[in-house]
């Protein structure tokens, strides 16, 4: 009986493999962006977090090392560093701090990239393919310290701008809701 159980577990492990190491090379064309509907954080005072509707299927992007590393390349290629520098911010807000004006969940970040935001964040809908938006969002999550250290990479192959994403400190826990919803200074 125990032998059978062990076999089943072993086979399941084999079948699942290791999700972190997936290399989904063939990107999903024309992902339907309306599959992920979320609600923005409300600015109303008082306790109670935002009401969110999400499928959760995109959360896997930040668990797969390939997506995070592609996101890192795209961050440079699409010139996100032009406003956000290497995560420290410039004319755009910092991505490595704990302040997330529009929410730090991956769906929120993807929405920021896709929709654009007031005061300068351009919209990239139709310009960056959907799956690449999610890859960049996964990388931004890594910059924020949300991604597991075995998924994120330890350093960039460029000039040393900041500690590698796997060595960034984890963001602080906030009770109920997303961290650091505050107005920028």
């Amino acid at each position: 009986m125990t032998r059978a159980v062990v076999m089943v577990i072993a086979l399941a492990a084999l079948a699942a493999g290791c999700e972190r190491e997936d290399r989904p090379l063939r990107s999903e064309a024309a992902l339907n962006e309306n599959r992920e509907a979320i609600a923005l954080a409300s600015n109303a005072p008082g306790p109670g977090g935002p009401i969110e509707y999400k499928s959760g299927t995109r959360a896997q992007y930040e668990k797969i090392a390939f997506h995070v590393s592609q996101g890192k390349k795209l961050f440079t290629w699409y010139n996100c560093s032009g406003c956000h520098a290497n995560g420290g911010g410039g004319s755009g807000p910092a991505l490595m701090d704990d302040v997330w004006i529009y929410g730090s969940a991956i769906e929120n970040i993807a929405a920021s990239i896709r929709e654009g935001r007031p005061n300068g964040m351009p919209t990239f809908r139709g310009k960056i393919p959907e799956d690449q938006i999610w890859q960049i969002a996964a990388y931004v999550r890594a910059l924020g310290g949300f991604v597991a250290s075995d998924v994120a990479s330890s350093r960039h192959d460029q000039l040393y701008a900041h500690e590698g994403e796997s060595r960034l400190p984890s963001p602080p826990d906030t009770a109920g809701g997303q961290p650091g919803l505050a107005q920028p200074k």
Partner: peptide, 13 residues
């Protein structure tokens, strides 16, 4: 390297 470095070989392989 750099193919086997942290940027071009993500993950633990």
């Amino acid at each position: 390297v750099p193919l086997s470095g942290p940027e071009y070989s993500p993950g633990k392989r």
